[in-house]
Every structure is written in C-alpha cells, then in structure tokens.
Simulated scan of single mutants.
Amino acid sequence: MDLIIKTRRGFEKLAASYIKELVGEGAEVLPAPSGYLGIVVVKGLGEGKWKIAELIAEKVLEADRILVVEEVVKADIAEIEKAAVEVAKRYISPGDTFAIRTTRRGTHPFTSIDVNVRVGAAVKEATGAEVDLEEPAKPLYVEIFQDVAAVCVPATREYRKLRRDKPLTLNALRKVAIGQMVYEGDDEAVKKMGERIGRAAQTFEVAELAILLHKQIPARTLRVFLEAVEAGVESRYQIQTRSYGRPVHKVPISVYELYQYVRSRAGEPLIVTDPKGDYVTAVKERLAQLFARERVNVLIGAREGIPPGIYRFADVVVDLIPEVTIATDFVIPSLMIAFTTALEEAGALPRYAGKRVKHK
C-alpha cells in the first residue's frame, strides 16, 4: 500500500475512478478493499506517492482524508509500535505535538485504544514530542486491515468542531429565556410553525421557552401550537442525545400572558426583537453587560410584533438585520447567531483552551 484514501460510504468507486485518471496505468487503485466501505487503496506509486497524494488532495473532491503509507507490518502490537517509532523519528521533532489515531478492521487481541496508548508512549520517548489529542501538529495514523497494519502520515489537515481560541457560546445561550408570541393561522400553518420554533429553541438549548398570549385567541389554535412546539423540542432533543458527546439541556416550555410575563421578570434583562430597534452589533457592549447576568429574557413576535408599550421596559430593542423582516420560524436561529457575533466582538465570550468545558 502507498496511499489510503477515506471517502464517504458509497463514494469509493467514484473516487477511485478519478484517482485512476491521476495515477495512470502503472498503479493499482482498489475501491472498498475486502469489502471495507469508505476506503480506497492505491498501490505501485513508489517514491512519487507524496506527489500523487497532493494531486489527489487538489483534484478529487470525494477524498475526505488522504494518508500516505510509510510502513506496512503484521497486525501485531509490538510490530506496530516498532514501525511507528521509525516513522516518528523521520516525521516528528522534539518541539512538535502528536497523537496516534488508530482504526481497526477485523478481530485482534488488542483494541484501538491499546494501540494508541502503547504506540503513543513509545513515540513520545523516542522523539521527545508531547501528546496533544485535540490539535496535534503531527498526527500519526495506524490503519489495520485484518492481519496487516499500515503506519501513515496524513497529506490533508484534520478538521475538528472545537479548536483552541474558538469562542465558547453554550453557557451564554443557556442564559436566554425566550418569550414567543403564539403564531395564528390555519391548523397546518400553525403546526408547521410550532414545530420549527420548538426545534430551533432546542437546537440552541436555551434556558426556557415561554409561549405568550396578549389577546384572546381560539383554544384550538393554542392547543395545536403548543403540541407542535413540544413535538419540535422533543424531536431535536432525541437527535442531540444520540449524537452529542455531552449532556443535553432539554428546553422547558410554559405559557404566560405577555404583560404578566414582563412583570414577573422585573429587574432582569429584557430584550425585544423588532425591525424598529438598534442593529444588534451597534449595541454589543450593552448586550455584553446584560449577558453578565444569570438570565436574559428575549421577546419575539409572530405576525404581529411585540406591542410598543413593552419597549419602555426593555433594556434593548434590537434589529437583527436592517431592511429585512425575518420570518417567525427563522427568528430564533438568527437571534442566537446575532447574539453570538455581538458578544464575540465585544470580547464577552470565553475561548476554548484545550480541555472539556462544564456547562451550567
């Protein structure tokens, strides 16, 4: 093996056809070797493998990760350790950081973690480099296929959701208590809007979602809307709990009369969203002050805006995007993104320092 290319499952043959055009007739290109989906193996490149790897990275969109194979050994942990140390001596300097990334395919008397730990300790001792599992400067990949193991160097960078110096937003978003006016219309429109609002609130894991009434509406409209909001929250929550590697805050839902809701939050920050307000980044310093508090209450209209009399009691009236009236189901996502941008520009968000964060 000279190259191991990782693709999305089902894209192996397509990627292999493009790669074959690049490497020519002298090399062998194997999509899904031994039935392993998401893998293309290239053989017979010789000393030109790095040049071909760079060419694949430049030309083949279907290639998600390109690994240059530096050593191939028997799938024995001692053999893998020895080979990895030899590669590391050529690839890793004492001032670098590194990590071992192991993927096993087949049955073995060791786990991927066993390989990572043992090989990582040996590489650290041999090179003097430090381990950094999150953002290593020089990652080493160990790709195991049944009885064969390949020690590889990546030709493409790693992309991670959370990197050092990225702003952390979740604790700020969990301070937001949303007061959402009831959406009125025919049953189908009310249901769709309620589900979207519920999903949006749960997506950002806001502190709470209060459904607000300020006038008489049909009982059926309120029931359909509430049931839809609850369904939206639940559907998004189930996805989050399955896919997130951390605890998920489920957004509680309540019902208030608008004016009593505002009175009940007296003394707490109150923000009204309306096109007549100030552009959100123009009041970023004020928003930073408000988000220093434990809870920030935000009022969102639906078809009808928030009654102007409420403005007098608001700390800020914000316009999320001048000259555009945002559809009701887009307000929560737009609001959360705008708040994040404003708070980051104001220097009010902490930054990721390379360790897990505890969320309130």
Rank of each mutant, 00 (worst) to 15 (best):
10 G>R: 07
23 V>S: 01
19 I>S: 00
12 E>F: 04
48 G>P: 00
158 E>L: 14
356 R>Q: 12
302 A>T: 11
234 E>W: 00
84 A>T: 10
120 G>F: 01
129 A>D: 06
54 E>D: 11
247 P>K: 06
278 D>M: 05
161 K>S: 13
99 A>H: 08
152 C>I: 02
127 T>I: 11
88 A>R: 10
128 G>V: 08
312 R>I: 01
301 G>F: 10
97 T>K: 01
264 S>K: 14
70 E>M: 13
67 L>F: 01
312 R>V: 08
54 E>S: 11
176 V>I: 09
42 V>T: 00
359 H>E: 11
201 A>G: 10
233 V>F: 10
291 F>H: 02
177 A>S: 06
153 V>P: 12
313 F>V: 05
92 I>N: 05
309 G>Y: 10
215 K>S: 02
20 K>Q: 15
344 E>F: 02
114 D>M: 12
187 D>H: 02
160 R>K: 15
25 E>D: 15
282 A>S: 15
205 E>S: 05
85 V>E: 12
297 N>Y: 06
220 R>V: 06
14 L>S: 00
215 K>W: 05
205 E>Y: 04
123 V>S: 02
151 V>P: 04
243 S>N: 04
263 R>A: 07
348 A>M: 07
75 A>C: 06
329 D>Q: 14
353 A>P: 03
310 I>M: 06
32 A>G: 04
160 R>T: 14
349 L>T: 08
264 S>I: 02
256 Y>R: 03
237 Y>A: 04
325 T>P: 00
82 K>Y: 10
4 I>D: 03
346 A>Y: 12
343 L>Y: 07
43 K>E: 07
135 E>L: 13
23 V>W: 12
243 S>G: 00
80 I>Q: 13
100 I>Q: 09
297 N>K: 07
